[in-house]
């Protein structure tokens, strides 16, 4: 663990119209670690995650104050380009959402968008590299030009991860990436996360305590829009400081 600060959230408040969804969040996320966000449904995990790549900009009624710093720069100042930010901070969604295009075109979409490949060969190798990293290449190498929507749910989710990896992000946000998957597909994704954290900073929202315990280095527990406590996963699970955390991880709330 490098112990280098990657993302720093300071006094973050988020509102959906009049309704406040996040209350004064302060959280540090370290480089090349997996940080998991846990908490009961509706506590604001997805909202917090979306603040990290400004996906909330798309929601008209969503407003915020406070700061989100990535590599020491506030991502919400007017001179920051959200498009550039999103190519640096990739996102994987709860439900696999491949484009209605071929597997190849799914992965190639990002590189094409940002003009990352100078030639067809370069693009090919980018696609193959990303699929390999996502642990999907061997399964699909013979049908790269078939529809991505024709894959199984777990394969689709790995395709979405490959698609996110293809734009060379530094941070990957995952919002319950395994909630639509069976245990075997889940195990594959977890292995993948283990593998990816050597190169990427990962923030993952999960509803499964076991998953948080298995894959993450640090854990943040949220409740009703507030960050209750955060720290090393092993500490949170073995020795929670707050009663609410204790109740949640032992299954009394949630």
């Amino acid at each position: 663990m490098s112990e280098k600060l990657k993302i720093s959230i300071k006094n973050l408040n988020v509102f959906y119209a009049e309704k406040q969804a996040l209350f004064d969040i302060n959280l540090n996320i370290m480089e090349r670690e997996v940080t998991s966000l846990i908490g009961p449904s509706g506590c604001g995990k997805s909202t917090l995650l979306k603040c990290l790549n400004r996906m909330n900009d798309l929601i008209d009624i969503c407003t915020m104050d406070g700061q989100v710093m990535i590599d020491g720069a506030n991502i919400n100042t007017p001179d920051q380009d959200p498009v550039l930010l999103r190519s640096k901070v990739g996102m994987v969604f709860q439900k696999p959402n491949p484009f209605p295009k071929s597997i190849y075109d799914n992965v190639a979409y990002g590189p094409r968008l940002h003009g990352m490949a100078q030639s067809k060969d370069e693009l090919d190798s980018m696609v193959i590299k990303s699929l390999t990293r996502a642990g999907l290449y061997d399964e699909v190498k013979n049908r790269l030009f078939e529809a991505g929507t024709g894959l199984s749910g777990g394969q689709q989710q790995r395709l979405c991860i490959a698609r996110a990896l293809a734009v060379n992000p530094e941070i990957i946000l995952m919002d319950e990436p395994c909630s639509a998957l069976d245990p075997i597909a889940t195990a594959k994704i977890e292995e993948l996360i283990e593998e990816l954290k050597r190169k990427y900073t990962i923030v993952i929202v999960t509803h499964s305590m076991q998953q948080a315990a298995r894959v993450s280095d640090r854990t943040a527990y949220m409740h009703m829009g507030e960050l209750i406590e955060s720290g090393f996963t092993k500490n949170i699970f073995s020795n929670p400081q707050h009663q609410k955390t204790q109740d949640y991880i032992t299954g009394r709330i949630g």
């Binding site: 498009v83 190519s87 959402n97 484009f99 698609r163």
Partner: peptide, 27 residues
Amino acid sequence: VPPSIEEASIGLGASKIQTLMNFTLPL
């Protein structure tokens, strides 16, 4: 048009207009 597809495109760093042209309109 499923919003999940548009979100995916935006999430990869496409602008709103690019997303409209690449996915929303064709779909």
